[in-house]
């Protein structure tokens, strides 16, 4: 389903798309992304004018509003460096969602071009840069959440590969891994009962596997699951993939 074809990576300079969730809540995930990329010898450019990928309006059906934001994003991320995003859903928005909503627009080629150079972080490290192992140490049992927007991409395999290569990390499987956490953006607002029930089910499966940490390649699922768990009075510890990679480096 996804237009997941990527232009091969040449050079060691990328633009960072930090995402609105990092801008507002998860500053440490963006910081970890910078540190991880710099560790790999990659120069990170942060286009200051960036805002959001346009996904909320796209999913909500307001494509006029969404296209306005995407056009801003296309302008902001001009150039030909790869664009790296610590979020599977924002990456998918760029290489799939935006392409869909620009189908009949004259600036479709520009949108497609940005899509072809946009990468989710783990996918970029493994499939873009060809890095297959991760140094350092991180002593924890982790469960890797399959963020839905990574379906059909290399992201989950990449995250698994990196996590399993870290000394001290033990990856545990849990039930119904392919099922959604129930977030779905505006879905969780308009369908709060179903969304909550889906999240509770995911939490049940996760807790049964008894990981120390839930690792996610996407902040939105993480926000949903930790938010639900906290309100239940049984908080779970969650980290973004970038944070685990960064912390592993620190323990080198």
């Amino acid at each position: 389903m996804l237009n997941a074809e990527r232009a091969p990576v040449t050079g060691k300079r990328v633009q960072l798309m930090a995402t609105c969730l990092c801008d507002a809540f998860y500053d440490d995930v963006a910081a970890a992304t910078v540190e991880v990329l710099e560790h790999l010898g990659v120069e990170v450019i942060f286009p200051e004018g960036q805002t959001c990928c346009g996904q909320p309006a796209f999913n909500g059906g307001d494509w006029v509003a969404s296209r306005k934001v995407v056009r801003h994003t296309v302008k902001t991320f001009a150039g030909d460096e790869p664009v790296v995003v610590p979020s599977g859903s924002c990456a998918a928005m760029m290489f799939h969602g935006a392409v869909l909503e620009f189908e009949n627009e004259s600036d479709l080629p520009e949108v497609e071009a940005l899509g072809r150079r946009t990468w989710e972080l783990g996918d970029f490290i493994v499939n873009g840069l060809g890095v297959k192992t991760w140094p350092g140490k991180f002593a924890a049992t982790v469960a890797l959440h399959r963020a839905c927007h990574t379906r059909g991409t290399g992201s989950i395999a990449a995250a698994n590969l990196l996590l399993k290569s870290i000394v001290g990390v033990q990856v545990v499987e849990f039930g119904e891994v392919e099922q959604c956490c129930g977030f779905g953006g505006t879905f969780s607002v308009a369908f709060p009962n179903i969304s909550t029930a889906m999240g509770a089910l995911k939490l049940d499966h996760l807790r049964a596997a008894k990981p120390d940490i839930l690792v996610s390649p996407d902040m939105s699922c993480m926000m949903h699951l930790t938010g639900l768990a906290a309100k239940e009075g049984q908080p779970i510890k969650a980290m973004h993939l970038a944070q685990v990679l960064r912390d592993a480096l620190k323990a080198q």
Binding site: C20, T51, C52, G54, P56, A57, F58, N59, G60, G61, D62, W63, V64, A65, S66, K68, V69, R71, H72, G97, L100, E101, T186, V189, A190, F191, P192
Partner: peptide
């Protein structure tokens, strides 16, 4: 599903729980 959400928006079908996106788009651009 996304195309139909867009169609619903274009036909101005009321949709409880869907926040208006115009102001947000302005801010985000």
């Amino acid at each position: 599903l996304l195309r139909l959400r867009n169609r619903a928006k274009e036909e101005n079908v009321p949709s409880p729980g869907t926040p208006p996106m115009g102001a947000w788009a302005l801010l985000a651009s």
